[in-house]
Design a protein around this nucleic acid. Sequence first.
DNA 1: CTTAAGTGTCATTGG
DNA 2: GACCAATGACACTTA
Length: 927
Amino acid sequence: MYLKKYLTEGLIQVAILLSLSGTRVDVGLEPGLLSPLHEMMLGPSAGITQTQFHNLWNHLKDGQPSHPKNVDLDGFTSRRLLGLVRSLDRLQVPNTELEAWLVHREPDMLPGEHHGQPAPLERAHVRLEDIAGPGLDPGDILRIQGENETGRDVHMEGGELDESPRPLSEWSQGSAWSDRSQQEETHRRVLSDHQMYSNSLDEEEGEMGDGADQEDQEEEPASRSERERRDSVSDRESAQNDEEQESLSLQECLRLLEHTFPLTHQPSEEILPAIGGAVDHEYMSAERGPLLSPLIPSEQPPLDLELQWEDLLAIMEPHGLDVSTRFPSYQVGPVQTPLDAAILSNYQSNSNSRNDNQMIYQDVHLMEAALPLGTISLHHPETRLLPLTPSTELDQHNMSLNLSEALENMDVNSSPRTPYHTNLISGDPLDDLNMGVDVENGCTAFDMNPLTQDPEDNLITDNTGLGDRSNFDINFYPNDFTSASLIPQELSGANPNLPILPLSHLLVDDEEEGDYGLAGPLGDLLEDATTLDEMSLLDLALEEGFSPEMAARLEEEGYLVPEQANRNTGPYVTVMPDNEEDDGGTSSSRMAQGSSRTLRQESGEKADSDSGLSLDCSFSPASPCGSESSCYSSSSSSSSSSSGSSEGLYSEENDQKDEEGEINLDMELEVTIKQEEEEGAVGGYYSSDVNKMVPSSYQEEKLFNGLPWQEHIGHDHSYNQAWPSTPTSVTGKTSKKQSKYSSRQSRTKSYSRSSAEQFVEAELWNRDDRRAQSLKIPFSNELIINLPVDDFNELLANHRLNEQQLNLVRDIRRRGKNKMAAQNCRRRKLGALQGLEVDVSGLRRRRAWLRREKQEALKSLQEMEQRLDGLYQEVMFSLRDEEGRPLDATDYALQFGANGSVTVTPRRQGTLPRGDSKAGKKHRDKK
DNA sequence: CTTAAGTGTCATTGG
DNA sequence: GACCAATGACACTTA
């Protein structure tokens, strides 16, 4: 069962991965696989995936990371592989490394400027820049930032900000910027990924994370020129920097970051919340038209920036939480490895991008931002506390908590944030997708950090995704830096239609997926799939994942049908009662044989009966149970003689031996059987001799030898049966049991070594068989059980049986049928349970998705309401009464006629113009 | 010795 | 009313 579950899980995950995109899987696998681009593309082998997933599970649950399969690839090989994968994906893989430190560079610019931010971040950035600096000059960054910000925010966190805005804008305008170098794209993607990650986190928490995407888009138009400039700068940088140089610089930077990481990390998180608080403030201010801002981003760059900033803040808060929760290692390990540093740098880059927004915002609320940063730092520790617990459950729990909190926040502060949701909806689907991916990447990145100690290793791991830690990490690492870009594109390409729904929804789903026990990353993947296909696709993917199981199930069921048919056909089935493995075709052919066989049996039976006990005792080849006979006979032969002829083929010699040796056994068996019957003992352990009971043609046995039908026999528990030969057979129940047990064991011991299977089957001889043997029932139990009623009655009529025999035969039939029915019932039960499990998982995902949708809808609704209010007030202010005074919105209401006419009517208590519930709200609020 | 899983059997129910 | 399938409950075995 557990193995099956594992397999199914692995299969499901594989299916999901495949459904999402081969790249993704590849990316994840690449690190672990030395050669295997094709595997990655085609889909990892089940074993690999399983192991990875298992590792993920283990990692999440146990916190134990590295998987043996996670091989650290050389930086070159890993890069090569990544490059190949990227090329396959169509995505050009720029050096993620570059991106990482580029982000860091920006901070360098900032150090002096940041008041609120903690020194460590700045330091780290500076160092990184200093080390890696080849490509970009701090001055460039500053310039870029200034350009981006239109000169407003240059002072603040410009260094950090400059690149972050770039990616956002570029990302949104990716098509326009296709010309640019791959590196630039990668930078953008990375940055966008980080942002997306934060967004996704926000969504998961129920925060307003969606707004970030919208903001990004909004920013684009306004800051195009700036972006272009930045792009040009980035191009220059990319051209200047060789990958190797970048890697080296990155390594150094990572090292530096490691030293400073904790501090650096905190600042980013802190800054974000602080910024978020400031943003909220601004939104609260009624002067601006935050809602409208998205509509006219170019005209109102500051507003856009603010909006973006808010989004970023919203994202950041959840992001930090998510990071902590998802990546316990990251949180736990105050000492972060270079990789972590790199990841952090990326993360910071996200924060930086937010900082850009902040910068814009800070022009207005600079002081506020500074304060919040300090205050936010407190926030960070909390997040870390959660992450300390490695268990996924805790993470999920945290997520859920965050979500609830986010929801609450929504309720309270939804109004300010809402405006962006519309943008999100209209937002580029690709961006959303990317965001979701990025989020995941960010997570993975964090995971990687702790393990990687050497900057080079970190880089390698980052690039290749071969993190030492856990398979899980490995799988997702690639996404973090290099692969991240790839994945998003693929996703976007694969699901252009999905765009409306931000990936963040998916992330939210992850929480619930956690219920399933899926790893966070896996859950993300699953959620992505769900979002893409709106759960239905996900379900399909799941089913596909289960396909093996399902197929097995179906096969079983299909088998069931034929099996039943066989049962109905009875006689034929008797030969192979349990031929589950047999196809219907075989059964049909067998049926024909069975008919002839039955005839033979009858004739043979008579002959056997003629032969008398000796024949019965000896294994008549046509043992009563056709199916059992073979195994049984073999066992019996083994028991009686060491020959242990397999396949139930008995040489006459064996038969004779059996006969001789078993005659006594027969007698004993009868006694024991009677006792059992008297005692009502359940099942019995039958000696091989029992087979003798049923006369079946020797040939028939041969025909049926080796057939799977014996399966059920194997299941037979011969309870209470004492080994005929054992002295205890005559003793009481307990003694019987013991004797039976001991006899079995002895048997198994003696036989198992020679021909284990045959012996086992022989052991399976059941009580009814023994009884039948004892009563000299002329036909096999299989025949008795599987014959149709008419045939069965005919059979009974043909054979003159005494009352005892008739009763036994009927009992055998009843019990045999019930046994098969019970088996079928249990099989169905298991199938139903599995199906229900699948349904539950699908429904959970569905529920999560619907919840996300609901949140989004509420957000958009609030946004619309706010916009309506603003418009209403605007209109009212523009109106003048007879005396030329502006109308008070509280005193007058707009009424919209059916013909499109709008009339201003004095507001009366209790009467509100249509669609002016909001106005009424306003009125009330003002009062 | 305990426990869970698997299996056979009985009794019952409904078709 | 007989037959059968399905199923719950119980007992037993086994790992």
